[in-house]
């Protein structure tokens, strides 16, 4: 579709305090475009959890967002260690995050389950030692 609005953000893996900047920016853009607040929240939360994952596990990466009238597509791509067992990673409560992440309020094993819950489609492409691509789609109402 040619009428998509494309956004791109690099996610720094060095600064945990900045994780969420891209999600916040996308949220703002969607608000400006007039999408309904429920859909915006679903995009923002799913993307935010994914962004946090990227910083915790993969030393950052990049996010590509395509905004269509009826849906928002997000690709989060990293060159991290990959996910050895995707099925396990999808279970609520399963986490491989280091302890220091827990003191920051994350690492409870809710990231991927939350992302799945808030998106209409979620696809993971992951290769050990190469990285992970996470594709998300959220269906939205016409603005």
């Amino acid at each position: 579709m040619s009428n998509a609005i494309h956004l791109h953000y690099d996610v720094s893996g060095e600064d945990f305090t900045r994780a969420g900047e891209a999600s916040g920016a996308v949220k703002k853009t969607l608000k400006k475009l007039g999408y309904n607040s429920d859909a915006i929240r679903r995009v923002a939360i799913a993307m935010y959890e994914a962004e946090i994952n990227m910083v915790i596990h993969a030393d950052g990466g990049f996010v590509d967002i395509d905004i269509y009238p009826d849906r928002v597509e997000v690709l989060l791509s990293d060159h991290g260690p990959g996910i050895p067992d995707v099925e396990k990673a999808m279970q609520e409560g399963f986490s491989t995050a280091p302890d220091n992440v827990r003191t920051l309020g994350f690492g409870a094993g809710m990231g991927l389950p939350n992302i799945k819950k808030y998106t209409d489609d979620m696809r993971i492409e992951t290769t050990i030692g190469v990285g992970t691509n996470l594709y998300l789609t959220v269906i939205v109402n016409q603005p």
Partner: peptide
């Protein structure tokens, strides 16, 4: 992540955690 698991409209967040991610969570 527990906060993010339950979307509710017009909420207040009570927390003992003090870092910028608390504000980002509230923002989302």
């Amino acid at each position: 992540s527990d906060v993010l698991a339950f979307v509710k409209d017009q909420s207040v967040l009570l927390t003992g955690l003090v870092n910028p991610q608390v504000v980002r969570t509230a923002e989302m």
